[in-house]
């Protein structure tokens, strides 16, 4: 029993009090204490202790990666990657755990390279005093100054690339339909896995579906005469359908780029709705989606009026009423590829 304890102790005990193990233990200790402190809303104590834990963890890791043995192993093609590990921890601490936000994302990623470059260059500013062995500030040698400038600039460039990635994501959130035409020609971006069904990426499909819904609520079950009147006034009536369709969908910047039109293509009332993309196009031809709806009349035989047997008038056989009502049947939205150019 004693042997086991001794062994554990030997393993656990840092070789010196001033060592990276001490710092890591301190950080674990802080994490445990932070977990034990009250979870009440202000959480001031917890925040301070967990911050201390992070600082200990960063310093401990910093120390650890600069240990000669570790430094030798942490090399990627002759490049010592230790500073980037430390930089990542610093960024997670600074930008990742704020107010319990789950995704550190943007700020953390963008600031990671320059912070790592600063971590990388710090040893170049420090020299150990020949007498007291304590670290003192020193101006880096010209060769080191040049290296610091180049490393910093290269890392800033990587930051810009991260930022570019996030910009592209912003654009795709505001203008998702750009994906529908594919980025094969782009000199900037590439899709890792080009999607199989491009059409579904276009919000034109959503617009047409919304328009179909609006059209159905407008015409279905209405007397046929009214439907025909509506159809003959299509140019004046359709804008309301368009507005209703737009109102159904989330408001994003892209909505400005879609135009919805409709025209009657056959006397049996085939209504062809067209969602026209007015933004930039990948090809010379215009990009549009169509949906054809057949508006027909259905004969509905309504049950005769209730015969009023107890009325004094003789119960005449009331004529069966035949009413014509509008029905709307729509096909699926189709991509321009499957249709001839207008």
């Amino acid at each position: 029993m004693r042997d086991i304890f001794d062994q554990i102790r030997k393993r656990m005990q840092p070789p010196q009090w001033a060592s990276w193990q001490t710092l890591i233990f301190l950080s674990i200790f802080s994490a445990v204490v932070a977990a034990l402190t009250s979870q009440a809303p202000p959480q001031i104590a917890e925040r301070i202790i967990s911050s201390l834990g992070w600082v200990f963890l960063i310093l401990g890791t910093w120390w650890f990666v600069y240990e000669p043995d570790v430094k030798k192993k942490l090399k990627l093609y002759e490049l010592f990657i230790g500073p980037w590990i430390v930089g990542a921890l610093i960024c997670i601490y600074l930008f990742g755990t704020w107010e319990g936000r789950a995704i550190p994302a943007r700020t953390a990623f963008v600031s990671w390279p320059p912070i790592s470059a600063i971590v990388w260059s710090i040893p170049k500013f420090i020299q150990s005093d020949p007498k007291t062995k304590s670290p003192i500030y020193t101006t880096p040698t010209p060769a080191n100054r040049q290296n610091i400038i180049l490393v910093l600039l290269a890392n800033l460039l990587i930051s810009c690339w991260f930022q570019l990635y996030f910009e592209v994501q912003d654009w795709l959130t505001e203008y998702p339909s750009f994906r529908a035409q594919g980025f094969e020609q782009s000199a900037f971006v590439r899709e890792l896995q080009p999607p199989e069904k491009r059409l579904e990426l276009s919000r034109g499909v959503d617009y047409l579906d919304a328009a179909e819904k609006a059209l159905k609520s407008q015409l279905e079950g209405k007397p046929w005469a009214e439907v025909e009147r509506w159809l003959s006034n299509l140019d004046q009536e359709f804008p309301t359908i368009r507005d209703e369709a737009f109102a159904q969908l989330p408001r994003i910047a892209e909505n400005q780029l879609w135009n919805l039109t409709a025209r009657i293509t056959s006397d049996a009332y085939d209504l062809k709705m067209q969602a026209m993309w007015q933004g930039p196009s990948a090809r010379n031809a215009a990009y549009y989606l169509t949906k054809t709806c057949r508006i027909a009349q259905a004969r509905q035989v309504s049950t005769p009026e209730q015969l009023k047997f107890n009325s004094p008038a003789p119960p005449a056989i009331s004529a069966r009423q035949i009413r014509s009502l509008g029905t709307v049947q729509c096909g699926a939205a189709s991509s321009p590829d499957s249709l001839p150019q207008p």
């Binding site: 994501q169 959130t173 900037f188 971006v189 899709e191």
Partner: peptide, 13 residues
């Protein structure tokens, strides 16, 4: 929203 559209070509060029 995060997609797999990466500015890889820009970086390469």
């Amino acid at each position: 929203m995060f997609t797999d559209v990466l500015p890889l070509r820009a970086i390469l060029f």
